[in-house]
Design a protein around this nucleic acid. Structure first.
Length: 800
RNA sequence: GCGAAAGUGGCGGAACUGGCAGACGCGCCAGACUAAGGAUCUGGUGACCUAAUACUGGUUGUGCGGGUUCAAGUCCCGCCUUUCGCACCA
């Protein structure tokens, strides 16, 4: 009987769903295991191998955990708000809701056809009002707690389309659609104060099981630094320029200052400045550039000196000039810096450009040739009372000195910036705030949630930079919830990150109309046992969702400070030509095509056999050939293998070893070597096999290739489904051979191998090795000076 | 520039806390079965040299150059290259 996956795959997919074996049994009493994948954005092009790799990996884990006696929750949903659906809707005059519904249907079908064991009864969709009601509810709580606020922020502006652009829509400084040069504009934006949680987001990384590279990247992104704030008085004004520095010890070397083009003092000092027009022109120039351009290009330093104002270095009273330059950003620190060209590379380049003095304050380099920045252990010079001190000591001394005089203070700074939480778009969660002329910003009462997206004819952004919602008078005009007077709704919507920042909580209790999830359910399932996702989400989604969860913990909704107990990250999968998979390059593979030609089990095995799950890899059709042949051999053997009791001798050892290895490899996400071990065992079983052995083999293979295993299970007349079978156990005693082969080395080179009983003593091993004809010949009568024995592995003989 | 990861046969990739490099698969070669083989099965397959009474003969080999060690793909020092992330972060 030839292997014919098409005949039965659909049948088993239905059987898994219908049997309820994928759904959670509340009363099972088994330990809970919550396996989570990053829920997909249901794009129009359907599910591709970039999804299939992580989903297959986690499906193997979830299936194995079920067999191992855990109550597994393995849910999926749809992160369906966002720009692509909206753009597609605009281009094709379809409602984004309908676009999404069609895409979701396609994704769901594909997910089922791949044999994934998701519990579809818990499916959530971020665009469902019953779902986004709670996204809005969380926003209201953030607002109530002072963590949501409005602030002027620069946005990308396309003068051609007359609308705000996402960073993604700006390609090389041009609008993706109309190729106009995109500029910058200030806009009042909703912000979330993630910075208030910076320290906790950093500290609690120690309490979770994240891969080192993920934790390192988050730490770097949060970017904690300890330094000092220093006040520089400005001559002829009552103002002081406040700077943040991590190197207060170099204060005596500060020979000029630089402020960001957006610094408020420029306007304040307008009348004092002899060259205001020049400065304003420079500012306009800087404003045209995106942050990206401004900070990316390794360019010559540009800037303008502020004529008419001078700052005073607080430690030595010297007057120093103030410049404006775009290399100083308003978004980090205070928007102003003290420049120490002797010991900072950027300041050095700027000083050279503008002929400014460069003073050495830490001994060791030649500051006239280049900035001397590697100074963590240097000694201070040219610094009055700091002379002779080590850098660390000098930092402390100067900070205290400044603090005593009210000129400075210790300050911890973070690179992390607050989260811009508004989009001028239709297809997002409406922000439940009303702007009242009398009462200001008023939150909607909870009872009015969800605030539904209104029906509109056009989803196009308005040409004023407002969201399309702004054009809907009947929706925009609403009574103030507080005073009842005429007021207007907020028309911006939330970013796509909103719905994905808490979805793992909704899976737990997806139908609950009264709360995000019941306390009981949260207690049982949180934190997520194992969350796997892409490295590209390490700094945004992963950090945002940790932030929201910490907030929910603070207000008593969540019961743990961290949402994820364990995080793993799969490697990025590239196309067969080694580049990113894209439709235009045609280097991708559609899982649908593979399934149609070879079946879902082949697809699953092929994608996991490619290479280390946690490392990047490139797709190759060769993987399919190997996987498919393997399954054909499995099916052939299952059919011809006779009844009988289990294997004995070395075959029994091979079986026990494989049980051990496959279990360990699944836990370590080493799916490629687990499959290799199964292939190797199959080769052994083909020589000598009974149904008893094949039964064990089938259960081991079942998480990887579940359909064929159900076929075998049925063929053998076993009870229930293979998916519900118990995971085989191994006997540690039966994983070791009684006779081992040892390598015999002479002076570190392999010369022979010998057979020895397991755990033979060093002396026995040495004696046996010396008795080997090959070794006798090499020894030529000499006696080894040393013999190094590595138990059950090798012996190395050293002759003088 | 900063941070992280990685360089192993023709190819994808294995290799536990230093211990027989190349598991497993693809491809290729030879053979078997065939009317036929792009099916299947069996055996072989890093490179170079040398073998024919001794295929458990020798040398060399994990990006490059040094080092530590009885022993290095693995550890240390110095380079080179690639990928990913961040980008003038004070």
């Amino acid at each position: 009987m030839k292997y014919n996956p098409w005949a039965t795959e659909k049948k088993w997919q239905k059987a898994w769903q219908d049997s309820g074996c994928l759904a959670v049994d509340k009363n099972s009493g088994k330990p809970p295991f919550y396996a989570l994948i990053e829920f997909p954005y249901p794009s129009g092009s359907g599910l591709h191998i970039g999804h299939a790799r992580p989903y297959t990996g986690m499906d193997v884990l979830a299936r194995a955990k079920r067999m191992q006696g855990f109550e597994v929750m393995f849910p999926i949903g749809w992160d369906a708000f966002g720009l692509p659906a909206e753009n597609y809707a605009i281009a094709n005059s379809i409602h984004p809701r309908d676009v999404v519904a069609g895409n979701v249907r396609r994704f769901r079908d594909q997910i089922i056809s791949l044999g994934y064991s998701f519990d579809l009864s818990r499916e959530v969709n971020t665009t469902d009002p019953d779902y986004y009601k709670w996204t809005q509810w969380i926003f209201l709580k953030l607002f109530e707690n002072g963590l949501a606020y409005k602030s002027n922020m620069p946005v990308n502006w396309c003068p051609g389309c007359r609308c705000v652009l996402a960073n993604e829509e700006v390609i090389n400084g041009e609008c993706e659609r109309c190729s106009s040069v995109a500029g910058r504009r200030e806009k009042s934006q909703w912000m979330l104060k993630i910075t208030a949680y910076a320290q906790r987001l950093l500290d609690d990384l120690d309490t979770v099981d994240f891969p080192a590279r993920v934790a390192a990247q988050q730490k770097y992104w949060i970017g904690r630094s300890e330094g000092a704030e220093v006040e520089f008085a400005v001559e002829n004004t009552d103002d002081a320029l406040r700077v943040y520095t991590t190197r207060p010890d170099t204060l005596f070397g500060a020979t000029y200052m630089v402020i960001s083009p957006e610094h408020a003092y420029i306007e304040k000092w307008k009348t004092l400045l002899g060259n205001y027009e020049e400065i304003a022109a420079y500012r306009r120039e800087a404003a045209r550039k995106s942050d990206f351009e401004r900070t990316e290009i390794q360019k010559e330093k540009t800037g303008v000196c502020l004529k008419g104002v001078m700052a005073v270095n607080p430690v030595n009273g010297e007057s120093i000039p103030i410049f404006v330059s775009d290399y100083v950003l308003m978004s980090y620190g205070t928007g102003a810096i003290m420049a120490v060209p002797g010991h900072d590379t950027r300041d050095w380049a700027f000083a050279r450009q503008f002929g400014l003095p460069i003073v050495e304050v830490v001994a060791g380099g030649d500051v006239q040739k280049e900035a001397f920045v590697d100074v963590e252990t240097g000694t201070l010079v040219n610094s009055s009372f700091l002379n002779g001190l080590e850098v660390a000591e000098a930092k402390k001394t100067i900070t205290e000195w400044l603090a005593e005089r009210g000129l400075g203070r210790v300050k911890v700074n973070f690179k992390l910036r607050d989260w811009v939480f508004a989009r001028q778009r239709y297809w997002g969660e409406p922000i439940p705030i009303v702007h009242c002329p009398a009462c200001g910003m008023v939150p909607l009462p909870e009872a009015e949630l969800p605030l539904r997206l209104p029906e509109v004819d056009s989803y196009k952004p308005s040409d004023t930079g407002e969201s399309p919602l702004a054009a809907l008078q009947e929706w925009v005009n609403a009574p103030c919830p507080k005073c009842g007077g005429a007021a207007k709704r907020e028309t911006d919507t939330m970013p796509q990150w909103a719905g994905s920042s808490w979805y793992f909580l909704r899976y737990i209790d997806p139908e609950n109309p009264n709360e995000i999830a019941s306390r009981e359910a949260i207690d049982k399932w949180m934190p997520v046992s194992w969350y796997n996702g892409g490295m590209e989400h390490t700094t945004l989604h992963l950090l945002y969702s940790r932030f929201w969860h910490k907030f929910l913990y603070d207000i008593g909704v969540a019961t743990t400070p961290e949402p994820y107990k364990k995080r793993t990250s799969h490697g990025f999968i590239l196309g067969s030509d080694g580049t990113k998979i894209s439709k235009s390059r045609k280097n991708g593979v559609s899982p649908d095509e593979v399934i149609e030609k070879y079946g879902a089990d082949t697809m699953r095995l092929a994608i996991l056999f490619l290479g280390d799950f946690e490392k990047g890899c490139r797709w190759s059709d060769n993987a399919i050939t190997g996987a498919h042949r393997f399954l054909e051999r499995v099916w052939a053997l299952a059919n011809k293998c006779p009844e009988g009791s289990g294997a004995t001798g070395s075959l029994e050892i091979a079986v026990h070893r494989t049980v051990k290895k496959v279990g360990q490899d699944i836990e370590g996400l080493k799916f490629n070597t687990a499959i290799a071990a199964l292939m190797a065992l199959l080769t052994e079983l083909e020589k000598d096999c009974t149904r008893e052995d094949m039964n064990i083999f089938t259960r081991l293979l079942s998480p990887f290739a579940p359909h064929i295993c159900e076929d075998i299970w049925e063929l053998y007349g076993c009870n229930g489904l293979a998916a519900q079978a118990e995971w085989p156990e191994y006997d540690i005693e039966k994983t070791v051979e009684h006779t081992v082969e040892l390598a015999v080395q002479v002076m570190g080179k392999l010369r022979a191998t010998i057979q020895m009983p397991r755990d033979a003593s060093d002396d026995e091993v040495t004696a046996q090795a010396l008795g080997n004809p090959k070794i006798i010949e090499l020894a030529a009568g000499r006696v080894p000076a040393r013999s190094i024995v590595v138990k059950n592995r090798l012996v190395n003989l050293i002759f003088k």
